[in-house]
Simulated assay, not measured.
Amino acid sequence: MNRGKTCFLIDDDADDQEIFTLVLKSVNPAITCITANDGFEAVTRLMEEKTFNPDYIFLDLNMPRMDGKECLREIKKIDRLKGIPVIIYSTSSEQKDILETRALGASDYLEKQSSVMELRNRLACFFK
């Protein structure tokens, strides 16, 4: 049976979560989007739920409790998740953030788009 893919969005902004989820559904209705409100919540879930292995992780950088870079470090320590692409999803366009997160193991960097159509176009590239 062909199961739909699972996307794990880690972002503290409820509006960003809602927009991302709706746009993702419009790109591919078979993709399930699960959200966490910050890095600490995400890492706790990933460590405790051994069968939770999302196909993609989208990770915001600026969050309370545990920011995106620290969360990325923790995700990369979990053996079963090492092959899962982690895409940084942030408002920051700073080259320093892009280079630093790549060095930490992020597979891509997606700047938060100001238009829903642009976000849709970018997500369509990931989920062809």
Results as ranks from 00 to 15, higher is better:
Val116Lys: 10
Arg80Ala: 08
Gly83His: 11
Arg120Asn: 13
Val86Asn: 01
Pro85Asp: 02
Ile57Tyr: 04
Gly4His: 01
Glu118Ile: 10
Asp13Tyr: 06
Leu59Ile: 05
Asn37His: 14
Ser90Gln: 07
Asp15Ile: 14
Ala106Pro: 05
Phe126Thr: 02
Thr101Gln: 02
Pro85Tyr: 03
Phe20Gln: 00
Glu94Leu: 15
Asp79Val: 14
Lys77His: 12
Asp60Phe: 03
Thr101Trp: 05
Lys77Val: 08
Arg45Trp: 06
Ala106Trp: 03
Ile98Arg: 13
Asp12His: 06
Asn28Pro: 07
Pro29Glu: 06
Arg122Ala: 13
Lys50His: 11
Ser93Trp: 07
Met117Trp: 10
Gly105Pro: 07
Thr35Asp: 02
Glu118Thr: 15
Leu9Phe: 07
Arg65Glu: 13
Pro29Ile: 00
Lys69Tyr: 13
Met1Cys: 02
Leu9Ile: 06
Tyr56Leu: 01
Leu99Tyr: 11
Phe40Ala: 14
Glu118Asn: 15
Met117Tyr: 14
Asn28Lys: 07
Lys25Glu: 08
Leu110Met: 15
Thr101Cys: 13
Lys112Phe: 07
Arg45Lys: 15
Val27His: 01
Arg122Val: 13
Asp11Glu: 12
Asn53Trp: 00
Leu61Trp: 07
Ile84Asn: 04
Glu70Ala: 15
Ile98Ala: 09
Asn62Tyr: 12
Leu22Lys: 13
Asp16Ile: 04
Arg45Ile: 03
Ser26Asp: 14
Ala42Leu: 08
Arg102Leu: 10
Ala36Gly: 06
Phe20Glu: 00
Asp16Met: 04
Ala106His: 05
Gly39Cys: 07
Ala36Asn: 02
Ala30Met: 11
Leu59Val: 04
Thr101Lys: 05
Val86Gly: 02
Ser115Trp: 01
Cys125Gln: 14
Ser92Trp: 04
Tyr89Val: 04
Arg102Cys: 10
Phe127Trp: 01
Leu59Thr: 02
Leu123His: 04
Leu22His: 08
Ile10Thr: 02
Ala30His: 13
Tyr56Asp: 01
Gly4Phe: 00
Asp55Lys: 00
Ser115Val: 00
Glu70Arg: 13
Arg65Trp: 09
Gly83Glu: 11
Glu94Gly: 09
